[in-house]
């Protein structure tokens, strides 16, 4: 008998940074571990809580401006250092949207002082003037990824990170260079909500495997039946390919047609 495996999931700021249903990522990591007999343990790491030594995989979601400021303050100093060195050592991590920005060096708002991040990722983010909203399809080492972006921050990758994915459909990090997200060691950051892991199970399993490895556990994962996951993935990809009907600049007639109620049959 092999020894009982456990997956310690460190959920950063579950009450403050959870605005876009990103809780789904924690649910998926937990369930996909449990279905394989690996005991998931979710450790909630809120403001003021120290970072434990034995976290296998971190999750860090997105938040509103006010919360993001409070979290940035909380991460300034030893707590941010601990998190950065865990990532440096190979801990698995997924950060989405606001969490992704705070994994970088800095977020620069339009009319407020710059918000420092923990600098685990060699990225910087500027406030943009346009909000990127819509379904995203991107190519990656985990195959085709699909999610939903909703951000105005423009993130620029430095030489110390690689892009997590290449945009096929959507805007990505900054709407210009075709990249989406960033990857450094076993840590990932991106703008993909949806939630992302439920529709991209290969990505979830990669994070679980890297997390198990990090503390020297067996990282072999048996495959799971992913029929529902794949269907959810396909339907989201199909949505991404349909033209957005609320795009600005369309004619009055086109807008009337788009908003008239559905025909009765």
């Amino acid at each position: 008998m092999s020894r009982q495996r456990t997956l310690r999931i460190g959920w950063l700021y579950p009450t403050k940074m959870n605005i876009y249903g990103d809780r789904g990522n924690v649910i998926v990591l937990s369930q996909r571990a449990a279905w394989r007999g690996i005991e998931p343990q979710v450790v909630e790491l809120d403001i003021g809580d120290p970072i434990p030594d034995d976290i296998d995989v971190f999750f860090f979601g997105g938040g509103q401006d006010q919360e993001q400021i409070a979290v940035s303050n909380d991460l300034a100093g030893p707590k941010g250092d601990r998190l950065r060195s865990a990532i440096e050592d190979g801990a698995a991590a997924l950060a989405v949207c606001g969490g992704y920005q705070l994994f970088g060096h800095v977020y620069r708002p339009h009319d407020a002082p710059p918000l420092p991040g923990i600098g685990a990722f060699d990225i910087e983010t500027d406030a943009g003037s346009e909000r990127f909203i819509g379904n995203v399809v991107a190519e990656s080492q985990w195959g085709e990824l699909v999610g939903f972006e909703n951000h105005s921050g423009l993130t620029w990758l430095g030489s110390g990170v690689e892009p997590m994915a290449r945009i096929v459909h959507g805007r990505g990090n900054n709407g210009q260079d075709g990249t989406e997200g960033a990857k450094y060691r076993n840590a990932l950051g991106c703008y993909l909500h949806g939630s992302i892991l439920p529709k991209n199970p290969a990505l979830a399993d990669w994070l679980i495997a890297r997390g198990l490895e990090y503390r020297g556990q067996d990282s072999e994962l048996e495959s799971l039946p992913d029929t529902l996951e794949e269907r959810a993935h396909r339907s989201a990809v199909a949505r991404a390919r349909i033209e957005r009907r609320d795009e600005p600049g369309r004619s009055l007639l086109a807008r009337i047609a788009a908003y008239a109620p559905i025909p009765r049959s």
């Binding site: 649910i27 998926v28 369930q31 439920p198 996951e229 949505r239």
Partner: peptide, 23 residues
């Protein structure tokens, strides 16, 4: 619905037995 597949997947992860799901 258009995103019924997302809903079925959500129910699976909520612990609803797959034999009860009609996607």
């Amino acid at each position: 619905g258009i995103r019924g597949a997302d809903m079925a997947n959500r129910l699976k992860y909520a612990g609803v037995d797959e034999s009860r799901l009609i996607p």
